[in-house]
Design a binder for these strands. Sequence first.
DNA 1: TCTGCTGTTTGATCTGGATCAAATATTAGC
DNA 2: GCTAATATTTGATCCAGATCAAACAGCAGA
Lengths: 226, 226
Amino acid sequence: MGLVAEDVERLDDIVKRTRPLHRGDFLFREGDRFRSLYVVKTGSVKTFAPSPEGGEQVLGFHLPGEIIGMDAIDKDAHACSAKVLETSAICEIPFSRLEELTSIIPSLQHQMYRLLSKEIAQDTDMLLLLGKKNAEERLAAFLLSLSQRLHKRGLSPSDFYLSMSRHEIGNYLGLAVETVSRLFTRFQEDGLMRVDRKHIQLLDLTALESLVGGSGQGRRQQQQQT
Amino acid sequence: MGLVAEDVERLDDIVKRTRPLHRGDFLFREGDRFRSLYVVKTGSVKTFAPSPEGGEQVLGFHLPGEIIGMDAIDKDAHACSAKVLETSAICEIPFSRLEELTSIIPSLQHQMYRLLSKEIAQDTDMLLLLGKKNAEERLAAFLLSLSQRLHKRGLSPSDFYLSMSRHEIGNYLGLAVETVSRLFTRFQEDGLMRVDRKHIQLLDLTALESLVGGSGQGRRQQQQQT
DNA sequence: TCTGCTGTTTGATCTGGATCAAATATTAGC
DNA sequence: GCTAATATTTGATCCAGATCAAACAGCAGA
């Protein structure tokens, strides 16, 4: 990402490798002091925040290559918890060390700004999804998002395992478990995918994409021009 | 914010003051190359993104003291548009100049990280709102958010004008205009606020806060423990 | 001032997805 | 392997809020 070998080495020096974490382990909990960012090397992690009513809101699922914890810099404390979904390798990057480095290496500083900015842009996409899309569009968008992110990491974009439960998917997408389950069934009947337990095969990426875009061929939908 | 006078001056030097903008003016449009961050001095701005179906999603309302454009750093292009809601004074901060400064002034770099992080945390709150809260809770949260942000700027927390339309509020909160209107009426009947056109008076902040928290005294709601 | 337009309110009806209910399939523990 | 606890699926019903419809109120422009 535009760093010379020497800089990469310096960055490498501050990264802590932790032994593998297992399903259910926490990277951090809501309220913890913020110290480090975490990078998923293999496996997956979910982040979630308690909602005032006692439930929780799943904020995201984090796949290999993705960074966790950037929302905690401002308040210097974590407002959400991060829980490992399957046996995972996670790197820890002490933020104060990272800050020292970025103030010395301008290109690294720029990367940090980009990473933070990207996180904002992704949240924005999610706002659009929760604010404007129906159940079908949400699940299609979710599946495509996983597909694309796995593909970016060199994994299969059309054949993968879901490390999260239907319940967690529903929570994340603002849908009830039952709705998620029914949609999986429907997508399968429509030949869009094959579902076997947590094993997913996407059979028609194009069709899924068109589902996400407009509400298919038919369903009316108010278009607010504000 | 922890800067010495000399640094403040340097920051001040790169800030461009533009003449007042008026209702309907754009700060930038979706697709524009990213060059600057914008700070609202007075007035208000809304940001919004087109949804694939042709409508739009209001992403936020920006009040004095707030920064706009941080989501565009990563892609070096704006993914949303920013439109002025009322006559406003806006400062422009060329990002490349800002980056030069932050690489020289560590405390400024830290502030930038905090600002970006705060934006992420705010989006996260919004995800919780759209994912878990009902119409009543959403509008109450919206009103309290405005109230708190205005108060932070030394303005009245309980008496203010809405520069955005009911339609825009609904769009932002994922609700229909009619629902927003009915809720304003209801809140008024319940003595929580007075509404006269765009003039708002919050009469019972405490009650509004309790509305946001749990679903009031009654309404059942599934609490997902995931 | 009048005129047309846009924004807001109010009422009636409809519906996507939640909720309730229950059977079935997995999985974890022993 | 066996059993309890948990997750998923499927079906029936319900309802918050969307949609449809229409009256009304501000407001900009002539």
